[in-house]
Amino acid sequence: MKLFSYLKKGDFFLFLFVLLLAGAIFLFLFRPDTEKKDCVIMKNNAIIKTVSLSDGSSQEFTVTGDYTLTVEIQGERVRVKESDCPNKVCVASGWIANPGQTILCAPNQVIIQIISNQEGEVDGVAY
């Protein structure tokens, strides 16, 4: 064909580059396995708040009840910053960030758990 004899070496590289770029952008935007993590706060076995951990925002809020907890969310991790409960196990648990990890506050009957739309790296966690 006349067209192909007219084209030069660089043209084919350019075509290939454009095709690869199109493919790369497509794969980057539509990669199916985007992990979504949520922080779920439960009190008396009822979900009272769900916060997305995927958008990287930071916030702080309090959970009231018999005792008052201050929950801090910083990017992808969560902790109980302050609590006026007697034993302060929840504060001592520190930061949690991986799906499946939980913070418990038994006196206040609060469970803070990180859940994911995917299966986690570990099969289970035993305490």
Partner: peptide, 10 residues
């Protein structure tokens, strides 16, 4: 040297 007019246009 390496690109034809068609390459430039693409």
């Amino acid at each position: 040297k390496y690109f034809s007019l068609i390459g430039v246009c693409v």
